[in-house]
Amino acid sequence: MRPIIQVTGLTKSYASGFQALKGVDLEIRAGEIFALLGPNGAGKTTMISIICGIVRPSAGRVLADGHDIIEQWREARSLIGLVPQELSTDAFETVWATVSFSRGLFGKPRNTAHIERVLRDLSLWDKKDSKIMTLSGGMKRRVMIAKALSHEPRILFLDEPTAGVDVELRRDMWGLIRRLRDTGVTIILTTHYIEEAEEMADRIGVINRGQIVLVEEKAELMRKLGRKQLTLQLAEPLAALPPSLAPYALEIAAGGMELVYTYDTRAERTGITRLLTDLASAGIRFRDLQTRQSSLEDIFVSLVTERP
């Protein structure tokens, strides 16, 4: 799939000497949902701000659908919609006025049908004549998304789109983001909610201390780095492990009523069959068993803590 955004050697240094980005290379494919994960201060917002034209890069190049964001800034910016992290709205404007203003700002002709569709999709139609200051935080977040969608962008940046919104609204937004992707919009989202990336993303990038640590298909990432745990619920409590089970590095849990075996899904042999055989030989019986895949959060934490 062709890249719609190409970032090459992107560097940002501030006057204070702080280097927010250190030669970032990244390609975003057209039509995908790309989740950019990283701890606070990792450089996520700086990178988005550079691509959107808000911050000037110190070095490097960014192409948006082949348009250089510096030399062909007008063409590049026309393609991009941005929903920033902060709730920044014109408090005294009505929803309709502020969304229509955004469309005009991006040079698009008046299209009331499109604005209506966007507002309806975001459940804002009933609030179209309300002043933004009267809306709840969640509604304001929707207004910001509506503003970004008002000019029909082909690339949409969502910087922490569901920060501070309730679970129901978050689910609604996930649905909206999927629908947008289905219409061909490329979506790049940053999030602190690993669950969000796990739920939504086609690919995941991890950024830490201004460097891209990893970019991977989500499924592949889970497969490559995922660990699984097998939990056996024992028929009788176990005080200590017999020496024959020592090679499995089992953990005794739940007051001796559970045995936990951690194994690598990538390994040629997981060792489960042999473990079950050895348990039977040792006279340890179990009532039930379950497996658990390690979450993206586990993977993320291991990535950002492993690299100093």
């Binding site: 959107c52 034209g53 808000i54 800034w73 007008r74 063409e75 910016r77 026309s78 991009i80 941005l82 920033p84 902060e86 920044s88 709205t89 014109d90 408090a91 955004s102 700002l105 991006f106 040079g107 503003k147």
Partner: peptide
């Protein structure tokens, strides 16, 4: 002051 300047800076307007 309110932060909506982001929209002006990211729009295709010189």
């Amino acid at each position: 002051f309110v932060g909506t300047i982001y929209e002006l800076l990211s729009a295709p307007i010189s």
